[in-house]
Design a protein around this nucleic acid. Structure first.
Length: 355
DNA sequence: TAGGCCATCTGGTCCT
DNA sequence: AGGACCAGATGGCCTA
């Protein structure tokens, strides 16, 4: 397992040793579940945790000191005052290990449950592919956008086939994910919007297009750990170009300027979840599993070399030319990618009905 | 090689 | 006391 020496975060070995993690010769007790794993953590955490653990077991120490206590300082060492120095007897080590292993198993199980839930969420996302999984963060963002977009549909009656709908879905997503979503939607180019945006912003849109092959609507996102996060909020696009009456008339605090956080926090959707969605319902429940077989050749390569959508900066257009929503007229999708904005709706509507 | 994403381990905190 | 939840740390894997 993880075998990393102490020292990166400070000298923990002394602390560990004082607690009995190390044998007298200083070697680690055991391998996989060795408590020396604590040394991997920050020094502060390590210190606190170790000392806490020490005090925690003081009670039982009384009963075991007799059996295995080893004089660390030798026979002639002066007796120390104050609280007894904690020693990790073998029995305690065993108990600790058992406890820790149990906790680890629980934590694993918990995380697996979380991942299962995330996978369930992926399946009801507008764009689902078994092989090209959305990353966790992208899944959550897309889910957020999806709810938001559907709410907007209810609120304004906007078509789910509009560019705006896709733009809502893509808001704040990484370029690859945006490409995936837009590609799945099979939307044609919309250079008009792009051009107008460029006019407004006085140049290539936020450095996203051309040279770096970024999302035409993307802009730098210094605050986020992940790559090209940040497609320009759809509302910015349409609002500033006078798309009155659209779903994007809601004011946005952001303008067409640099430095705007790509995922600007709460996009509180209108809470219009009381009724049923008036969406296309003709898809069978299994349609989300259908395959798109547009360009199998490319797909094979794509699928073999990309696991997560977010790890494909070139996106589904397979190149540096940017977002297919505006720049491509055809899309290369993974073989098993399944998208339509309506497929999940049968799930949504059925679930909404119970609300 | 750097960066992104992930699983896992771990200790702390809170709750029952 | 034990479990759930959380966040930090770490290493592995993969891709550009």
């Amino acid at each position: 397992m993880m075998t990393k020496p102490f020292g990166k975060n400070g000298d923990v070995s002394e602390l560990v040793s004082s607690l009995g993690w190390l044998e007298e010769d200083g070697s680690s007790q055991d391998g996989e579940e060795s408590p020396d794993m604590m040394g991997h953590h920050g020094l502060n955490a390590g210190i606190h945790s170790c000392t806490d653990l020490g005090s925690e077991d003081i009670d039982e120490e009384e009963e075991e000191d007799d059996e295995e206590e080893i004089g660390l300082n030798g026979e002639n060492a002066p007796k120390r005052r104050g609280p007894k120095k904690k020693k990790m007897t073998k029995a305690r080590q065993e108990r600790f290990r058992a406890r820790r292993m149990k906790a680890n198993a629980r934590e694993r199980s918990r995380m697996h449950g979380l991942n299962d839930a995330l996978e369930s969420l992926r399946r009801v996302m507008p764009c689902y592919s078994k092989t090209q999984k959305l990353s966790k963060i992208e899944t959550l963002r897309l889910a957020h956008n999806y709810i938001w977009a559907l709410s907007e549909v209810l609120e304004s009656g906007q078509s789910t086939e509009s560019h705006g709908f896709v733009e809502m879905l893509c808001k704040g997503l990484s370029q690859p994910t945006s490409n995936l979503v837009a590609g799945c939607l099979q939307l044609g180019p919309s250079s008009m919007i792009l051009n107008k945006l460029e006019d407004k912003c006085g140049g290539p849109v936020l450095g996203g297009v051309g040279a770096q092959g970024g999302h035409p609507l993307s802009y730098p996102s210094p605050g986020l750990p992940s790559p090209p996060y940040g497609s320009l909020e759809a509302s910015h696009l349409l609002h500033m170009k006078g798309f009155k009456g659209s779903a994007y008339d809601n004011p946005s605090p952001n303008e067409c300027s640099s430095g705007t956080p790509p995922y600007d926090g709460p996009l509180t959707p209108p809470l219009s979840i009381s009724g049923n969605f008036a969406l296309k319902q003709e898809h069978s429940p299994h349609e989300s599993e259908r395959n798109y077989t547009t360009h199998p050749g490319h797909h094979a390569h794509y699928l073999s070399s990309h696991h997560y959508a977010t790890s494909t900066p070139g996106g589904l257009t397979g190149g540096p030319q940017g977002h297919p929503l505006f720049q491509a007229s055809r899309y290369e999708l993974p073989l098993d990618v399944a998208f339509d904005p309506f497929t999940p709706s049968h799930l949504v509507s059925s679930q909404m009905g119970s609300i």
